[in-house]
Design a binder for these strands. Structure first.
Lengths: 338, 338
DNA sequence: TTGTAGGCGTTATCAG
DNA sequence: CTGATAACGCCTACAA
């Protein structure tokens, strides 16, 4: 903290008026004379006065800080969510503290504690993959600190939340594969613990069945990262399971699949089309071939999360709001028809 | 902020003792009787007492918060730096607030202001690409808030800093290319504004000259992102400039180069070897072929930055410390010999 | 229109 | 060993 920051008292002394007058002048209180107002503001500027947020927080029992817990900031999706949060929060006079759970439940609990200790005014959370107990979050709620979930939401906690149309996004991606003549579509999915995984899986199943393709459980494999995607496809090929398309629950999984396919000298997209989910353009565009993917509006999700949180903080009585944002299928060479 | 958090006063009232006694008991002050100490601690636990950090900050004129400004968290390197910072900071009882400048000078200035308003105890900064004026940072210093620079440092500001051996890393990468028989090595570099770019370029030039290869400025091209890397190589090939290796100032640039090479039906690494810098394993490993790169110890850099900052905060008199961490060349298929 | 006083939660100092 | 008091910087009744 700074050496000798100027305070309201300093200004008051210099001007021979009371601190309270300075305080009021600074916030443009109606019944302060124009002259003192002007003098105060001028001197404040001159002395480079900055209000002490810490004192303000104590006084108001409000820190103007939002706590955020995400699995890992390294993913493009989460980074862009955070950017959206920061931008909107700053514009509303709020700070953001971001914590990473590293997909670890214990870490998530610690993060929650730390943020509560920092007296954040509200919490925005996307839970880790192995979080199945929610006591730490319910505790927060009980202490009157509102929570908003995004992407990986917790159902049944009566909070606002923001998700994308996982079901529809997955459905659309699979439909696109079917429309381009694919029939033997593999879905590499996550375990059912996350809501998003369940939704995407449902989208896959409904899409193929709606188009007269029988669901074959051999083509539904649990794999949700690069190497498990790689192995999953290797195994399927070794078992002579017929494949002409792969839909990955996320980009990395799809990329692992691509690697396996290439190593088996299968051409993408001619022999097998591949589609991912999330669309990390920092990766999908660079690949050979560039990967089709279901784009999620991360930045917008971040903004919306903050918006809902601010609303929940404002009107403690207000009912939770569930927002669902649209996805968009980005078709690149990995699933082009021609 | 929470509804009705328990305070020291509450505990005092319940126990019919003075708040100051509670405070002392809680921090294991030597001259408090065991009995009251025990009673206080027990009740505190029972009531789920959490010290109010805001009040503490005000009292101590210290927020136990470190402000961090990085260009973009989406890069693996910066993400891992941040993880290192968070881990060490938390273990020392400090919080971390991360801001992104998005490689924008104006944004960096705003971030600095915001962090100062939040009364951070110290600042860790990696400047944006187009930051050439440093007033905003000097201001911080003048207010007695210590700064530590990492990676993209500002020279001549008398602060501690942490960098990697950019020169040596670049030199080693180029030497590796030469040792595998390459003679026509292109370096895609950044503009000279960043110290790291200058160092890497110097490493490239010295390496080739030390090995009897004449420096040819046609093979030194400014390009520091995916598409400019792509175009740079396209242009060189169109001009019939002979190339048998590319050393990119960062991974994305190298990947852009790979794309161009592939489109010209040049085999990697047989016809042209490629090496990047930074080593984002979330990308380099996924590529076809996987990209060789100079690994930078991001996590360790984060830890070290915090360490130096804490030291600077502790002993205001202490002299700045410059730490230089080692890089490591990770050789993958994009530059394998055989 | 402006000043006074009290308090947000904590701790350091001084007194008992 | 423990209690009372003041102070960190700010805001807001209430008083003037």
């Amino acid at each position: 903290m700074s050496q000798e920051q100027v305070t309201i008292k300093d200004i008051a002394k210099r001007l021979n008026i009371a601190p309270s007058t300075v305080s009021r002048a600074l916030k443009d209180h109606p019944d302060i004379s124009e002259s003192t107002k002007k003098a105060v503001i001028e001197l404040a500027r001159e002395l480079d006065y900055e209000p002490n947020i810490v004192a303000l927080s104590l006084r108001k029992s409000k820190t103007f800080t939002i706590g955020v817990i995400v699995p890992e900031i390294v993913h493009y999706f989460f980074s862009s969510v955070i950017s959206g949060m920061e931008d909107l929060a700053y514009s509303k006079g709020y700070n953001v503290i971001v914590c990473q759970s590293n997909e670890d439940y214990n870490r998530e609990v610690l993060n929650t504690k730390a943020l509560m200790q920092s007296r954040v005014d509200g919490l925005i959370v996307s839970v880790s993959k192995n979080t199945i107990d929610f006591e730490h979050l319910k505790n927060v709620q009980e202490k009157g600190v509102p929570i908003v979930f995004f992407d990986r939401i917790v159902e049944g906690m009566n909070t606002s939340s923001v998700v994308v149309e996982d079901y529809k996004g997955a459905y659309g991606a699979v439909k696109h594969l079917i429309n381009s003549g694919r029939k033997y579509i593999v879905h590499l999915c996550s375990p059912d613990s996350l809501s998003i995984s369940r939704e995407r899986k449902k989208g896959y199943i409904d899409a193929i069945e709606d188009h007269g393709i029988a669901f074959n459980e051999r083509r539904l494999v649990i794999a949700d990262n690069f190497w498990s995607g790689y192995e999953a496809i290797n195994n399927l090929l070794a078992d002579y399971v017929k494949i002409d398309a792969v839909f990955g629950v996320n980009d990395l999984t799809a990329i692992g699949a691509m690697k396996a396919l290439k190593e088996h000298n299968l051409k993408i997209p001619e022999d097998v089309a591949v589609v991912g989910f999330s669309d990390d353009p920092k990766i999908t565009e660079l690949l050979d071939p560039p990967l089709s993917s279901v784009y999620q509006p991360g930045y917008e999700m971040g903004e919306t999360s903050v918006e809902l949180l601010l609303k929940a903080m404002d009107e403690k009585t207000s009912r939770p709001i569930q927002k669902v944002l649209e996805t968009k299928l980005i078709i690149r060479d990995s699933s082009k028809l021609d």
